[in-house]
Write a protein that binds this DNA or RNA. Structure first.
Lengths: 99, 99
DNA sequence: CCTGTAGTAAGACAATTGTCTAACTACTAC
DNA sequence: GTAGTAGTTAGACAATTGTCTTACTACAGG
């Protein structure tokens, strides 16, 4: 079973977060999680292959935006909301509100 | 004399703005402009060549973040603050406040 | 006109990125 | 066990990106 690693948010730079959110696919993931709460990867509709999807989750995780835990064969993912609001106040709101 | 073109902010996607802000150099530019107001390109200290600097301003301009006008040999640049606050509320504050 | 300053344009280059397919691991259900 | 489902890994590939050098335009001041 895969063991996911999550960065300490204090050590994530703004540029890293911006970079992670610079892809429409990844913005869609963040929005889906924010609106629907914890989800498995495959519960979010995306027009890319399984491997690409996995890659996008990797990027978001490395940027400290999401938290992933394993449950059976699924990887349940959620937004690191509290921490994010502390480290980058206004970021999530921006992503959710901007059109 | 160069004629700069500036996009209509309504047509700029969040991903484009995020992409533009995903480079530390460009974040530094935005911060400098926000703190010091309108500036010429060369008034912002950056550790890159003239050409690279010009490129970063291009990217920021194309993403709708900055406005450039010519004055003699200088290109005076400022943040499109009012419009940005309307189109992406919280964005500038985020960039300025995040460490 | 000459020199200097501010910036752009073109081209090259290595590094990064987004995507895919194919093969793999790990769990669930029968 | 065998199948099926969920996701990862490895490798490849084209496209994009950030950087540079060199050469250029355009203005300012003598």
């Amino acid at each position: 079973m895969k063991c996911y690693s999550h960065p300490v948010l204090r050590e994530v730079a703004l540029a890293d977060v911006m970079q992670a959110l610079s892809d429409p696919c990844r913005i869609a993931i963040v929005r889906a999680l924010a609106e629907r709460g914890e989800l498995a990867c495959n519960e979010i509709e995306l027009d890319v292959s399984k491997a690409t999807r996995s890659h996008h989750f990797d990027v978001l995780r490395a940027a400290g935006l999401i938290y992933t835990r394993t449950e059976g064969t699924k990887c349940m993912t959620s937004i690191r909301e509290t921490e994010l609001n502390k480290r980058f106040p206004g970021l999530l709101k921006l992503v959710l509100s901007a059109k």
